[in-house]
Design a binder for these strands. Structure first.
Lengths: 240, 240
DNA sequence: TTCGATTTGTTCGTATGTATT
DNA sequence: TAATACATACGAACAAATCGA
């Protein structure tokens, strides 16, 4: 057992294991640092170091005087991290979704590869319009693997007060941690032009996203088409 | 002066100031932790905390047994962080630049605002083609403030073995730490179509970038137009 | 409102381990 | 081998925020 590895790493993976097992729910407090220290047989400083890293990875949240909590990704957090559409001034605006359709379909080859499931395995397909100031700015075509989210209903999505990711967190305890996107430019075709209210043939962004949870398990594969007539897609490189 | 703020933050900004002033060159070692502790009148642990954060921000690099060094951003690092064009498989390819023009001009309003300089202040304007496998994939229109990079020449840029950012680092000791981009989709017009070898009117990405060095000082404002017929723009959200 | 207990935040000092020169 | 530098770990003390009695 006496690996030549640091104790704080042991504490970190121990706590991470508990989190993955769902030992505490989102927003709940984990044991205090002295308690964890005693439980792992290390000093408080060592626990702090482990918790420091989990906080840096957005897995835990500290609050002085209260405790340390399982990161509950609020609507604000999800909005800040995963919603990148801004207006020409670089400002974000509150968006409201409009659910267009919800179906259970078989995964095509691309979807299956991205979600690492079998070709033909069942996925939910969700089509969504993103409205900013009553105009449609983006169109989403989302695939979620059924195996991870059994029993997801159109009702749950239409009634939501949060993002799709918020629903996955609240109903299934699955947290989206990061995502990879591949952006290209295309000329909007017929149905897309109708959806986005484009009077003339226009260039739009085509964003292909795969989102991941703990252990880099993919949970969301989607296309998003963004009209950039009055908006843009904001990116940060090299942290911030 | 006795702000209710932590000492380690004082050490951190003190060291960051030294770096911005160019007190040490890239790759050089900064004073050891005990020396810094003595100089700032704090304990070694406090210095470590400050250095920890600067390391996390890619500003310093530690090496056990050797010392702590000013991060020297290699071509590989700059390529990985700031070059986001990938092929349809999501793989990056080595790119070669082709310098089209180099001029000294007055900053227009947009450039001046982005670079936080006076309207009309001198800037270098660099036009650049990015070649991947002998085909032009992107066109750059770059503005750098002359005040920060006096005496920059076309020769220095054309002879470079690295990126533009590499030149700024090597010749002026200025490190690009992060950048903000605003991406939109446009239909390529006449001259752009010629440059990018587009036979038909095509949608291309228009990337507007502002890059920053220490203390969030802007040093590069550019437009990049990317042909996404055979390539895409890769983005990561929420760390990686 | 006040007070005390609890919890995280900051700082210090010390000791030991490991990598480099 | 010895000196130097960073890495890890421990323990202690006090500050600041929170919460309930």
């Amino acid at each position: 057992m006496a690996q030549p590895s640091a104790k704080y790493l042991g504490v970190k993976s121990g706590v991470a294991d508990w989190l993955r097992e769902g030992r505490w729910k989102f927003g709940q407090a984990i044991p205090s640092e002295p308690v964890l220290a005693h439980r792992f047989g290390v000093s408080v400083g060592t626990v702090r170091r482990a918790v420091d890293e989990l906080v840096a990875e957005n897995i835990l949240v500290r609050q002085q005087g209260r405790g340390t909590f399982v990161a509950s990704h609020t609507r604000d957090y999800l909005f800040n991290v995963f919603f990148r559409i801004v207006n020409k001034d670089g400002q974000k605006e509150r968006s409201t979704p409009r659910l267009l359709s919800f179906r259970r379909v078989a995964a095509d080859r691309t979807t299956a590869a991205a979600l690492r499931i079998a070709h033909g395995a069942p996925v939910y397909r969700i089509r969504n319009l993103i409205m900013l100031r009553r105009t449609a700015v983006a169109f989403d075509d989302i695939r979620l693997p059924e195996r991870l989210f059994p029993g997801l209903t159109e009702y749950a999505l239409s009634q939501r007060e949060t993002t799709v990711y918020g629903v996955l967190q609240q109903r299934y305890g699955v947290n989206v941690l990061w995502a990879e996107e591949l952006v290209s430019a295309v000329i909007a075709g017929g149905s897309l032009r109708t959806l986005l209210d484009l009077t003339r043939p226009s260039a739009v962004l085509k964003v292909q996203r795969t989102a991941y949870t703990y252990r880099d398990v993919p949970i969301d594969f989607r296309y998003r088409f963004v009209s950039t007539a009055h908006h843009g897609y904001q990116i940060f490189l090299g942290r911030h």
